[in-house]
Design a protein around this nucleic acid. Structure first.
Lengths: 325, 325
DNA sequence: AAATATATAGTAAACGGTTGACATATAAAA
DNA sequence: TTTTATATGTCAACCGTTTACTATATATTT
């Protein structure tokens, strides 16, 4: 691979001048500029970004840690992050933690060593804070890790309100909420809070089901849902905390002879592609995943520049009505 | 951030010795080793991988270019690649090209500049070859780009055979295939070939529908499928070239009053999460995506080491029977 | 004619780490 | 006692690029 020296030699000028045209600094004549570009083209030269990074003390690279990119929610999030980062000239290093704290710690160390300019964490582990050294900027998605780490989320409480009210409006009298573990300090817990509050206010019978880590990792909630139906056969509306749960709720309901939405209404959360693809398609609360990714990138970049950034950024959600309600 | 010099100073030894314990070279006493580790811990030191990469002339990083990581197939693929790469000490840079040749070229240049050790391309553009400079190793997924670039795929022909035979066994007399553009030089075209051949051999009526770029990008095939049903109302079996198409085929069939699988049987391809989540769940051909990712990584790493690698690697597929047939 | 702007070159240090050559000192083995 | 293995140190070169500094040589204004 050609380097600056080769380009300078071919163009018949000094290394310094070549570097100047590359970085648009100082005075350069048109002819010199042309000579340089010609030599670069001839040698198929592209600057060694590793060397640049070393000198400049930043890499224009951000790390993204998610539990699993094959989970459609994180897939969309990562796509939004990468797209927006690329538009700003930043690269993305992808890390799948599979909910394992150890891996997350390892990834953080790795990213630190690779001198990324910041890390976006869409992950669930606690106790990560102590491993987040001094200088590196972090942003979390949907999760408060510590007071000093900014968080981007959507309005989970409002999402809970919207979903619950809609189910009640549709005439449900016996609601169930299915969500993830409440022990994790996730903003998503607010969906459940809103659900309980709205149900209580409306005098509607309600219950909530908490699933575990295994279900989350395997993306398989069927056993939980079957139990829910067995123990509460009169449930006529389910607010699922993800579209994946909603899809499986529909499967389980249909299998037990219930019709969706006639016998039981189901509403999901996230509005990932699965919600559009099922039969019946899933009414859901759309999180503005693109915008969440965009804000996460903007914030991490501002942080890296030493600017003051908001501690929390809450984006609005929207009810998307489809066939399952 | 602490560097080698700081660690050496704190440990009271020379920079060279610290570098020696870091790289396990030469003779080091236990006490010195301990002093170094203590100092490293105290300073929260981690070696600057950028500097290392510059010296070593490789980055332990690979680039992955996919059309869209939010497409569940590529999400799974990227996850498999990242997981396997991480296990081997390699990092992954993620690139979403959205099927735009320009972006792919830009990404390739970027990855070249960042001195990645290799690039895995799960993308569809032609004419990329001229931009793939001299030294950088490439591997494609499911696509022959040129004679000299290794390709990893699953056995698309066999997948087509399995799917078509299964539909015929189930009693279908009037089959349709829905797939992507055949102009692209994808291995996936072989599914269609197999479909036509098997149908002809069995004397079963068949047709095949080719969707375009827009449908692929938007992941929305409903209009195509509606037309198919309108123009061929007697179709009683559909072989869809992806689970996304299969899911939408089921939606469209149900909407038009057909029952799945009683009136029309649908078989998908890939076995992504969507196939498990729909009602009815989708019978499909499972591509061994994990293994495809693993082989892609192994091959790119071997290539980077200058070893001889197979030109094509074809992994077996499997029929997964669910409810849609 | 003097002052200023423009255009280019060379040298050297820096970024942080690795490595080879060479020196030195102690401890164990021949 | 000599040899050898072990343990550390110093020094310098190197990876490819940036940049500050200094030096010159034109060209253009005052």
């Amino acid at each position: 691979m050609a380097n600056l020296k080769d380009v300078a030699a071919l163009a018949g000028i000094s290394i310094t001048t070549v570097s100047r045209v590359l970085n648009n600094r100082g005075y350069i004549s048109k002819e010199t500029r042309k000579k340089v570009y010609d030599a670069m083209k001839k040698l198929n030269y592209s600057p060694n970004e590793v060397a640049r990074s070393l000198f400049r003390q930043h890499t224009n690279m951000i790390g993204v840690i998610v539990p699993s990119i094959s989970n459609p929610f994180y897939g969309k999030l990562a796509e939004a992050i990468e797209t927006h980062a690329a538009a700003k000239g930043f690269k993305v290093m992808l890390c799948n933690s599979f909910h394992e704290t150890e891996k997350e710690i390892e990834y953080i160390k790795m990213l630190e060593g690779n001198k990324v300019d910041g890390v976006i964490i869409g992950s669930r582990s606690t106790n990560l804070v102590e491993y987040m050294g001094t200088g590196l900027p972090f942003v979390t998605i949907d999760r408060i890790l510590s007071d000093s780490i900014p968080c981007v989320s959507s309005d989970n409480y409002q999402g809970g309100v919207l979903a619950t009210q809609f189910l009640i409006e549709k005439g449900c009298k016996n609601l169930a909420f299915i969500g993830g573990s409440r022990k994790l300090n996730m903003m998503a817990n607010k969906r459940n809070e809103a659900f309980m509050t709205i149900c209580k206010d409306a005098g509607v019978k309600c219950m909530s089901l908490e699933t575990g880590e295994e279900e989350l990792s395997a993306m398989d909630y069927v056993a939980c849902i079957e139990r829910l139906f067995r123990e509460n056969p009169k449930v006529d509306g389910v607010f699922a905390s993800s579209d994946l749960i909603a899809a499986q709720t529909i499967q389980t309901a249909v299998k037990s002879g219930r019709k969706v939405p006639q016998d039981i209404r189901v509403i999901g959360y996230d509005d990932i592609i699965v919600a559009r693809m099922t039969t019946p398609s899933i009414t859901t609360i759309r999180q503005p995943i693109n915008e969440m990714g965009r804000y996460a990138v903007d914030i991490i970049l501002d942080e890296a520049k030493g600017e003051i950034v908001p501690k929390t950024t809450v984006l609005p959600v929207r009810l998307i009505v489809r066939e399952s309600t």
